[in-house]
Design a protein around this nucleic acid. Sequence first.
DNA 1: CTCGGGCCTGAGAACGTGCTGAGGACGCCG
DNA 2: CGGCGTCCTCAGCACGTTCTCAGGCCCGAG
Lengths: 218, 218
Amino acid sequence: MRLLVVEDEARLAAALQRGLRAEGFAVDVARTGPAGLDAARHGGYDAMILDVMLPGLSGYELVRTLRAEQHWLPVLMLSAKDGEYDQADGLDCGADDYLTKPFSYVVLLARLRALLRRGAPERPAVLAVGDLRLDPARRRVTRADAEVTLTAREFALLNYLMRRPGQVISKIELLDHVWNASLETAPNIVEVYVGYLRRKLGRDRLETVRGVGYRLAM
Amino acid sequence: MRLLVVEDEARLAAALQRGLRAEGFAVDVARTGPAGLDAARHGGYDAMILDVMLPGLSGYELVRTLRAEQHWLPVLMLSAKDGEYDQADGLDCGADDYLTKPFSYVVLLARLRALLRRGAPERPAVLAVGDLRLDPARRRVTRADAEVTLTAREFALLNYLMRRPGQVISKIELLDHVWNASLETAPNIVEVYVGYLRRKLGRDRLETVRGVGYRLAM
DNA sequence: CTCGGGCCTGAGAACGTGCTGAGGACGCCG
DNA sequence: CGGCGTCCTCAGCACGTTCTCAGGCCCGAG
C-alpha cells in the first residue's frame, strides 16, 4: 500500500512517515501544496494524507483541483482545530475523511484503514509459502520452524514477495514499493538485498528471471 | 454490541448515548458509581465507558471492585485532565484504556473499537509472561517471585506491553497509550523508559525491533 | 567460441537508530 | 528550606543497517 503524505511541518511529516512505514506502508512525503499535487497526479498511491495549511497551495485547493481532474484518490485531511477552516469545508471540497489536530495516531490509523478497506480485503494474519512463515504483527519470520532474523528492509522485501508467491515481480516494482524510490534509483540495491535474503533463507528460494525480475518459489 | 456508560453529567451521558447508538451499539447509562457497578455485574456488556468522577463510588474504586470480583469487562476510563487523578492511576487500577477530558468523539470511538476488537473473554486476574507477573488491581510486579518496584510510568508501560506479549508494538503506539502524547513528541522518552525497565527486569526481556518498536519476549 | 549485458557479491563508507549517563524541573514530605 | 523520587530532555556514543561501488561471474545471442 502506497501512501502520500503532504505536510510541511518537518517533525510531523517525519513522525507520520516513520509510523506508517512501521505499519507496512510505503510512504512518500511532499512538503508543499504544488509538490503534493504533482505527486498525487502522477504516483499510483492508494491514499493521501493531507494537511490543510500548506505553503503554495492549501489542502482544500489541492483536493478541489485533483477532483476536477477526475482523480478519485482517497483523501484524509488534517487541520488545526482553531477555527477558520472547519470540518464541513474539508468534506465539501472533496476529502473523504477529516481529522483535527492534535489527533491521536491510532485514530489516524483507524481512519486510514477504513478508507483503504473499500475494495481491499483484510490480509491474512500470517503469510506462509512452503516452509516459510511470516507474521507481520509479530514481525517474525521462520524457516522450517527456525527463527530467521531480518533487518527492516529485508523484512519489507520478503513481505512484499510473499504476498504474490510464484509470480515474477520486477525490480522497478520492488524499488517502488519496498524502497519507494524514484525511477532514477539504481536497481542494484534490489540485487544486493535479494542476495542478503538468499543467504538467510536458502539459495534457491528466490529465483532470478533474467531481464524481468524475481520470483518466490512456491 | 452492548455498552455500559457510567457518567453522572447528564449532557455528556446523553451525547454519548446518542452518538454510540448511531454507530449501532446498544447503550445503557448509569448515573452513579453504585448503579454502574451493579449494572456491570449483572448485564452482559461488551465494554464499559466509565467516568472517574462519580457520585457514591469513584471510577477507580468501581474498576478495582469489579476486577477483584473476577469481572474482565473491557473498561475505557474518562477523566478530567486537570491533575489530581492522572493517567498512571487509571491504568494502574485495572482499566484497559484511558482518555482525558476534553476528548474528541472520534478518538473515543477509535479507542472503543480497538478495545472491542482486542476482546477480553477470560483474562486472568494477573498477567503472566514467562516468570514475570503483573497484577493490575494490586499494582504489583514480580519477577521469579521477587517483587520489583516500578514507578507509575514504568508500570503503565509494562502493563501495556504485557497485554500483547510477543507482538511488536511501535513507539508511536506506546506514546499514544502510555503517555497520551501527540505525534510530535520525541520518541526518545520511550527508549529511556524501556531502558529503565530493562534494568529492573533483565536485559533481554524487552526486545528491540529496529525501526519498528519493542516486543516483550514470551 | 566470443562478446555484451545483466546479475552477483565483498568491501567499506555513510547514515540512522537506539542506548545511556548527566542533569534540570517539579512536586512531595520531613 | 533541603532531600528525595519521578519524569523528562539532551547530547554523545556505539553499533547495526543501508547503500554505493567495482570487479568478476554467468547466461544467452550471434
